[in-house]
Amino acid sequence: MENFIGKLYSVSEVAELLNVDVKTVYLWQKEKKLPALKLGGSTWRIREQDLKLFILEAIEEGRK
Rank of each mutant, 00 (worst) to 15 (best):
R45Y: 13
D50I: 00
P35W: 00
D50L: 00
Y9T: 02
P35R: 00
D50T: 00
A15C: 12
K32T: 05
G6R: 13
W28A: 09
R63H: 08
E2Q: 10
R63S: 08
F54W: 13
Y9R: 02
K38Q: 07
G41W: 01
E48P: 08
R63M: 08
R47G: 02
E60W: 12
K7V: 14
E61Q: 15
E31Q: 11
K30P: 05
W28H: 12
K23N: 12
G62A: 05
V14W: 14
S12L: 02
K23H: 12
L37H: 03
L56S: 09
R63E: 10
K64A: 07
N19E: 14
S10C: 01
K38H: 06
N3T: 05
L34M: 08
K7A: 08
L8G: 10
K23Y: 10
K32A: 02
W28L: 02
S10L: 03
K38L: 04
I55E: 06
I46Q: 05
G40F: 07
G62R: 14
I46R: 04
I46P: 01
E31L: 11
R47C: 02
E61S: 14
T43C: 12
G40N: 03
V11K: 05
K33C: 01
Q29N: 11
F54H: 13
E31W: 03
E60S: 11
K32N: 04
K38P: 01
G41I: 02
E60H: 13
I46K: 08
P35K: 00
P35E: 02
L34K: 06
F54M: 12
V20G: 06
A36E: 03
N3G: 04
K33Y: 01
E48R: 13
N19F: 13
Y26F: 15
G40I: 07
W28P: 01
G62V: 08
K23I: 07
I46H: 08
G62T: 07
D21T: 07
V22D: 13
V20E: 10
F54I: 06
I59W: 11
V14N: 12
G6F: 13
R63G: 03
Q49I: 15
E31M: 09
F54G: 12
R47H: 04
E48Y: 09
M1E: 13
K52H: 04
W44V: 05
A15K: 15
M1Q: 10
E48W: 05
K64G: 03
L34V: 04
R63K: 14
D21I: 08
S42L: 09
